[in-house]
Amino acid sequence: MSTESVLDEWQIALKQKKAELEMCQKEHHLKSCMKCEKLLECELRDSYIKAVYDSMSKGQGGGFEF
């Protein structure tokens, strides 16, 4: 498996999650999740954040320490 196909896999997953998140925001007439009352308990947003981290680490695990 080439590096390019791995990059594509993670970027495709990220784009899909982003589209799902943007659709939810549109349905709720929001421009940002920050104004949503379900912000901290939203599974859709959590899956988007995980996709962002996975795309940054290319699925190699590890974590982002803050």
Rank of each mutant, 00 (worst) to 15 (best):
G59N: 05
K58A: 12
A13D: 13
K18N: 12
K58W: 09
Q25S: 06
Y53M: 14
A13M: 09
T3L: 14
L39R: 04
E27F: 05
E65M: 08
C24T: 07
F64H: 08
G59D: 12
E37T: 06
K35Y: 10
E20Q: 14
C42A: 06
K18H: 13
H29F: 13
Q16P: 00
I49D: 01
E43M: 08
M34V: 07
L21H: 02
G59H: 04
V52C: 13
E27K: 11
L44W: 02
K15H: 12
S32F: 11
Q16V: 11
Y48Q: 04
K38F: 11
Y48A: 02
S5Y: 07
S5A: 13
K17W: 02
I12T: 09
G59M: 05
T3V: 12
M23N: 13
H29R: 15
D8V: 10
D54C: 05
L30G: 02
F64L: 12
E43Q: 13
T3R: 09
Y48S: 03
K58T: 10
G62Y: 07
E43W: 02
K50I: 10
L7G: 05
Y48T: 05
A13Q: 11
G59L: 04
V52T: 04
C24N: 03
K17T: 09
Q60A: 14
Q60S: 15
E22R: 06
D54H: 02
K18L: 12
G63C: 11
I12D: 11
L39C: 03
S55H: 03
G62F: 06
E43R: 05
S55V: 04
K38M: 11
M34R: 15
H29A: 15
F66A: 06
Q11R: 10
A13Y: 02
G61W: 01
C33V: 03
F66Y: 08
F66C: 06
E20V: 03
S57P: 01
K50P: 01
R45P: 01
L44P: 00
A13G: 05
M34W: 10
E41F: 06
E41I: 14
V52F: 02
S57A: 14
S55R: 00
K26V: 06
V6W: 02
L14S: 04
Y48P: 00
L7F: 10
S57V: 12
S2N: 13
F66H: 07
K26M: 08
D46Q: 15
W10C: 07
A51H: 00
E27Y: 02
I49M: 10
F64R: 06
S5R: 10
K38D: 15
V52G: 00
S47G: 04
S57D: 09
F66S: 08
E37A: 03
E65C: 06
L21D: 02
E22Y: 04
Q60E: 14
D46T: 12
L21A: 11
L21S: 04
